[in-house]
Design a binder for these strands. Sequence first.
DNA 1: TCACAAGTGTGCACGGTCTGCAAACTTGCA
DNA 2: TGCAAGTTTGCAGACCGTGCACACTTGTGA
Lengths: 202, 202
Amino acid sequence: MSTQAAEGLRGRKKRQTRTALGHAAVRLVAEHGLDHVTVEDISAAAGVSPRTFFNYFAGKEDAVLGPDPEAGPRMRARVLAAPAELSAAAAVRDALLAEVAAELADDRELWLQRMRVVQQHPVLLAKVFSGGEVVERELVAGIAERVGLPADDTYPLLLGAAAGAAFRVAIARWAGTATPLHVLLAEAVDMLAHGLAEPHRD
Amino acid sequence: MSTQAAEGLRGRKKRQTRTALGHAAVRLVAEHGLDHVTVEDISAAAGVSPRTFFNYFAGKEDAVLGPDPEAGPRMRARVLAAPAELSAAAAVRDALLAEVAAELADDRELWLQRMRVVQQHPVLLAKVFSGGEVVERELVAGIAERVGLPADDTYPLLLGAAAGAAFRVAIARWAGTATPLHVLLAEAVDMLAHGLAEPHRD
DNA sequence: TCACAAGTGTGCACGGTCTGCAAACTTGCA
DNA sequence: TGCAAGTTTGCAGACCGTGCACACTTGTGA
């Protein structure tokens, strides 16, 4: 729900091809496993040539993960737009929760299947992290701007990295339980805000 | 300084070849950039055949990073061996600092060059993360055991992930400043322990 | 001393990944 | 209708990574 207006017939078809490739990649890998699926398979399933595949994605992994280039700027904007009375940590917390809500609303089923595939293929996990790195960089920039520190200061870097950590942990737990993602994410973020103190035991 | 005794001539040569390949990889990539260096180049510089290269490393990236399979178990042991009166977070803090000290003492110059190379090649960053993931898993197991929670509970997962985040931030800052790594790492860990509260301004 | 088992290095072949290039083809617009 | 710009595609080529078979080295026990 970001750039749907004034796209023209050209852009529309491009977007269609891209999502067709992405969906095919997730489905095929879920069915046959990552290294029993070739770029040729994915292209065929999406009805384009293998060469065209590489016009859209850098490789199999990218197609499965379908990285969102707007996620970084969005997080940055969210952090900067948060009410001024909130602490930076609280602003990041809210930004994370809002982002998760928006992402899931977009394409819930695909997301879940994607996560399942990622859990089964450590190679994909690596790509997720490096993708998260790009987002994290923008997030760090937003935090730095908000608190008035340079972007290479420990505080913005660490808050950004911690946000990434909380996100990953929430995702990991989500894949194994029935608890809603936003609950798990809030739990993780709150734990960070309390200095990682040991939780009370039953 | 872990398994140097009773190695035999066989094992010694194997280790030599491995480090020769690793060093050649770091040096060549530092000189010419990651994708202007082929496996053939690295093998030639180390005096072995390209086929042999793949007996040691899964690819260029692995050779550059020289992953340490013992790092995970070591961290786990450190966390479990920490004095009982320490909190889990403090135990992790000490384990991190001890690990850094040991690693750097081992081969300081290579480490620094490696980090510089990694900063310039996001692809390598991805591998660092996935490598860190393996270590993190062990660390999480240690934390879980120490505090008596299951390893898939939020607390151990998050503390492990946060430790990884602090480590990465410290490394990133270290590559850009003259501050000793252990100081940066302590700063980051303390910031986490204080709930990521905004630091005092000058 | 010798021979043999196990471990290590190497060449070869093969399928897969990814890129550059140039030739079609399609779309948007005058 | 016709042109400019964008998209798809095939082709060639470099590189990656693995399986396999064979040569060579090392350690060991007869």
